[in-house]
Design a protein around this nucleic acid. Structure first.
Lengths: 343, 343
DNA sequence: TGTTAGCACTCAACGTGCTCGAGTGCTAAT
DNA sequence: ATTAGCACTCGAGCACGTTGAGTGCTAACA
């Protein structure tokens, strides 16, 4: 690919940044005010940039609009390192210092912060089972044939699942079953739970194995389905952006936001610590998805992201996500440390 | 208030039902096709109805549009008893027969069904603490100074809350604390949990009282905040209705749907087994809210509702909500029965 | 050789005036 | 009491001209 001259880069960057805030095609006159060149010169350069595929013209007598390729070039080479403003950092800290609560709340708080700071829709995927370890498991009786399984993880997450047992069971049996489950799975990865796990039996009777398998099966299914849950915040903000003034487009997008599985996949598809997918790279039309990971220690847990029109404030979004992803990681890692400290 | 003649009622009903599906002002010509009267006669009647406040004219040469008063009259006197279609009933049953799972899932399933069948946004408020009884309480150690409180209710709901204790506590202490909590609160209303509850102590030391109070305080706060959670489904459907073709209106509504506390209040404000609030009665502009209760036995738990434009298919919405509310009640009551059966 | 001024050209956006038709109210006839 | 007829109203939709932002090209200039 041909190298762009410094001047071309400057012009391209100015066009992109102008267009990102104004959403109207930018013309040579406008640019000549920011850049010390005559409009004619700029026209020539723009013409070249168009030929190279960085700019597009909606119609003959309109200004130029950055192409997908331009955005890609922008985030790869031109993006300025944005510092969050002091007030923004303070805003983030306010959440960070909050008591450590329920995982679900932490995630939706994080999403709300991101959405608020960026003015785009924010999506978070919950911790993946493969990244989380069992801290303890407890069975609680509900009625004769139903029990509640409460699973506690090292990241401070709780998962409770009602289980209908194959036969009626006494509280004592449940207790010993709890003990068994703990001996088997405590400290292991949550993903290792599935029926058929072999364990050294001393004096168990055959149908206890059946109960054990039932519990594992239900638990496994539940954890897996839990993985598909996603948290969405700030959906109303999308309508503030021009590209959704067409109601049909807005409806389609809103519907996407309601399809949790698809949305979760979309967010998790990002790779690397931060990932920027632009336009068709997302598989969606005229949409961009920026995501960052969060983790506990060095175990990858999930991703937090922003989804919006291709014309997106990439610099702002990137710095916010980077910051929030890091904060989330700190929170989850802290929880883990507390655990170790205990031992 | 003046009584309407049978003919006026018929005309009014036809206008309303026509307008509900078409959303365009209905004229006398159109009506004369459905009703065996000349357009002129109908015009006279319409003129009278307008004077009585049942109809409105957007402008001189447009048809008539039903007023809020007309809708109110419609749901109170004219509404036909809609039977759900066979396929709809089958659809409902499919959900009803589903395994009884997590409360949250039941509620969001219910909301999704309502939204799907009515094509409006559906909102559910979770069971109120005052309607729910403690089944059992369990404390699980997380680390030295943190424990997880797992509260099981008679409606099969689970509530888990992390609690940071005032001092480090041994698992044995937690166990005895669990026992105490169970003795005190099992079978009682969840709402009776708060710090400072007096209990007959045998050999408890002073600071155990402090731990006890901490647990109760956090639990109480948590349960209260949990009450404000609402489930919203089908938000994207709102955009299909004409009254939201104005993006600004759509945005405002979408934002309302994200303000959980306000939304919950709005839904819970309904009274009676089913409640229909129209237009300004809701406190919102040009919106209607239809809600139905669901309960366990005779204890009121929460409400499920539909929120949409004043021009709403009241008959359809009413029958769906009535049905789903009843189904929800059956589910939650069943859970309760199982409990009693156990004893 | 790169930059700039000037000019003709293009085209969406906007405003104006026009027609069309759905709908009304009124009056007079049935 | 109902209906037919007619004049009137007014938004929707279309044609048309104007405006202005923006372009490409050419020729002059440093």
């Amino acid at each position: 690919m041909e190298e762009l001259t410094e001047r071309q880069k400057q012009i391209l960057q100015t066009i992109i940044e102008d267009y990102i805030v104004s959403a109207i095609p930018v013309g040579s006159r406008t640019l000549s005010k920011t850049i010390a060149l005559s409009s004619a010169t700029i026209r020539n350069e723009m013409s070249d940039l168009e030929e190279l595929g960085y700019l597009e013209q909606p119609h003959t007598s309109a200004g130029r609009v950055p192409s997908q390729k331009a955005y890609r070039f922008y985030v790869d080479h031109l993006i300025p390192m944005t510092q969050l403003s002091l007030s923004e950092i303070r805003y983030l800290r306010a959440y960070y210092d909050k008591r450590i609560g329920q995982t679900g709340e932490i995630l939706s708080d994080a999403a709300r912060v991101v959405s608020e700071l960026t003015q785009y829709v924010s999506v978070v995927t919950p911790p993946r089972v493969s990244g989380v370890k069992v801290s303890s498991i407890q069975l609680m009786p509900v009625n004769r044939i139903t029990a509640m399984v409460v699973l506690l993880t090292d990241t401070g997450m709780v998962q409770n699942t009602p289980i209908v047992l194959p036969r009626s069971v006494t509280p004592d049996e449940l207790l010993s079953m709890s003990g068994l489950l703990n001996r088997l799975f405590a400290g292991k990865n949550v993903s290792e739970i599935h029926p058929g796990v072999q364990y050294a039996v001393e004096n168990e009777i055959a149908d206890q194995k059946q109960i054990f398998d039932t519990i594992c099966a239900v638990l496994e299914a539940r954890l897996e389905s839990e993985e598909n849950r996603v948290v969405v915040e700030g959906a109303s903000k999308m309508l503030a952006h021009q590209e959704f003034s067409d109601v049909e487009k807005a409806r389609a997008f809103l519907q996407l936001l309601e399809e949790n599985d698809k949305l979760g996949e979309l967010v998790n598809e990002g790779d690397g610590r931060v990932s920027v997918r632009i336009g068709t790279e997302t598989g969606l039309n005229d949409m961009s998805i920026v995501t960052a990971t969060y983790s506990a220690g060095n175990r990858h847990l999930g991703r937090i992201g922003v989804i919006g029109p291709t014309r997106m404030q990439y610099d702002k979004v990137l710095s916010v996500l980077e910051q929030v992803g890091q904060t989330l990681s700190e929170i989850f890692s802290k929880q883990e440390e507390d655990d170790h400290e205990e031992k």
